[in-house]
Simulated assay, not measured.
Amino acid sequence: MTSAALTDPARIVNVLLVEDDPGDVLMTREAFEEHLHNRLDVVTDGDAALSYLRYEEPYTDHPRPDLILLDLNLPRRDGREVLAEIKNDEQLRSIPVIVLTTSQAEEDVLRSYQLHANAYVTKPVDFDGFIEAIKQIDHFFVSVVKLPN
Results as ranks from 00 to 15, higher is better:
M1Q: 10
M1L: 09
T2L: 04
S3Y: 05
S3P: 13
S3I: 12
A4F: 09
L6G: 04
T7F: 14
T7Q: 11
R11Q: 14
L16K: 00
L16W: 04
L17E: 04
L17V: 05
V18Q: 13
V18E: 07
D21T: 10
P22F: 00
V25D: 08
V25E: 12
V25F: 04
V25N: 07
V25L: 09
L26R: 15
M27N: 10
M27G: 01
E30H: 13
F32M: 13
E33M: 14
E33S: 14
H35G: 00
H35T: 00
H35P: 03
H35R: 03
L36H: 02
H37E: 04
R39L: 13
R39C: 12
R39W: 02
V42G: 05
T44Q: 15
G46T: 06
A49Y: 03
A49Q: 04
Y52P: 12
Y55A: 05
E57R: 11
Y59Q: 00
Y59L: 05
D61W: 04
D61R: 12
P63D: 12
R64F: 08
R64Q: 15
P65A: 06
D66C: 04
L67G: 12
I68M: 05
L70A: 02
L70Q: 04
L72D: 07
P75G: 13
P75M: 13
R76A: 14
R76H: 15
R76Q: 15
R77Y: 00
D78E: 15
R80Y: 09
I86S: 00
I86R: 03
K87E: 09
N88V: 03
D89Y: 05
E90Y: 11
R93A: 06
S94T: 13
S94C: 06
P96V: 00
V97W: 04
V97Q: 01
I98Q: 02
V99P: 10
V99D: 03
V99E: 08
V99K: 05
V99L: 06
T101H: 08
T101V: 10
T102R: 11
T102F: 08
S103R: 08
S103Y: 03
S103K: 11
Q104N: 14
A105M: 11
A105D: 14
A105N: 14
A105G: 05
E106S: 11
E107L: 08
V109E: 07
R111C: 00
R111P: 01
S112R: 05
Y113Q: 06
L115E: 02
L115R: 00
H116E: 08
N118D: 15
N118F: 03
A119N: 15
A119D: 13
Y120I: 05
Y120M: 08
Y120E: 01
K123S: 04
K123M: 06
G129D: 10
G129C: 08
G129W: 07
F130V: 02
I131A: 02
I131L: 01
E132C: 01
Q136P: 01
D138L: 03
H139G: 06
F140D: 03
F140M: 03
F140A: 01
F141K: 02
F141Q: 01
S143C: 10
